[in-house]
């Protein structure tokens, strides 16, 4: 091995900073995740499969993933639009709108959960309006969808915004000079530039939504097979002191997270190769 593990450096504090980093990372993150994997290993692949391969668990995993996908798709479209509007246009209240995009990050999930439920319940402000046309939102999959849209809202906007800021006007002018219509320029020049960032934001929103618990459980209604999300199943198993089953579902969800983390990294590698930045 020609390359040393750590290059010699005149910088002080190697031992201290490395020590703090690795110790805390191990204690807070790696050992607990290791405990989950160890529990799964003891339980065995067959045991995990037996737990996960039940109608109720499949239904919950599928529900969490499917609604997260829909919510992330909604956020993909709305997030790109929002990023464009916030960067390119000047209008009164733009600063407030820009700050409001981060509210879902700052507002605790339990607060968002009870607040959305109050709004969309049959006697709530939006719930009543929807009820007029016979549309039930809270305690149905629509409610879960809205909660997941809420928690994933900032991701796409915040990843796309800096890219829109970086776009050089000359590129658009060149496209226009060559006779492209505005729609053509947006479709073939601008959107391709935004795609990698938008996809990264989409994957982050998706990953966040799949694991979301606090903002969903209040509005979901939590009916098994219909509106029961995967994280809730873990809580139910834990409350029955069924640690093996909880670990099995936890590992299934962890695998989904790892897969999505991999996808995010692949998108970034791909876009770096394609356009030189993320």
């Amino acid at each position: 091995m020609g390359r040393p593990l750590i290059h010699r450096s005149p910088m002080p504090g190697l031992g201290l900073s490395m020590g703090i980093t690795l110790t805390m990372l191990s204690l807070v993150v790696l050992l607990p995740i290791g405990a989950l994997l160890l529990k799964g290993a003891n339980y065995g692949l067959a045991g995990i499969w037996e737990t996960v391969n039940r109608e109720r668990v499949w239904a919950a995993l599928f529900l969490s993933f499917r609604l997260s996908l829909f919510a992330a798709l909604f956020n993909l479209v709305f997030g790109v639009l929002l990023a464009w509007v916030l960067v390119r246009y000047r209008f009164p209240g733009r600063r407030i709108l820009d700050a409001a995009v981060d509210l879902p990050f700052a507002l605790p999930t339990a607060v968002a959960g009870i607040s959305l439920t109050a709004l969309y319940a049959p006697n709530g402000f939006f719930g009543q309006l929807a009820g007029e046309i016979g549309w039930k939102i809270a305690y149905t999959q629509w409610g879960i969808f809205i909660a997941l849209v809420f928690v994933g809202l900032p991701f796409v906007t915040r990843t796309v915004q800096p890219v829109v800021e970086e776009i050089e006007r000359e590129v658009e002018e060149a496209s226009a000079t060559l006779g492209a219509s505005r729609f053509h320029t947006i479709r073939h020049v601008i959107l391709p530039m935004l795609t990698p960032a938008a996809l990264t934001g989409f994957a982050l929103a998706l990953a966040r939504a799949v694991g979301e618990y606090g903002s969903v459980i209040f509005i979901a209604g939590n009916i098994p097979l219909v509106t029961e999300i995967a994280p809730l199943l873990i809580i139910i198993q834990l409350e029955e002191f069924n640690y093996d089953a909880a670990a099995a579902i936890g590992i299934a969800m962890l695998l989904i997270s790892f897969a999505m983390l991999l996808v995010i990294n692949l998108i970034q590698v791909w876009s770096r190769r394609r356009i030189g930045y993320v």
């Binding site: 993150v29 618990y213 994280p231 962890l254 997270s257 983390l261």
Partner: peptide, 9 residues
């Protein structure tokens, strides 16, 4: 990693 792990997990 913690960003992509469900808080419940």
């Amino acid at each position: 990693l913690p960003f992509s792990v469900s808080p419940v997990v």
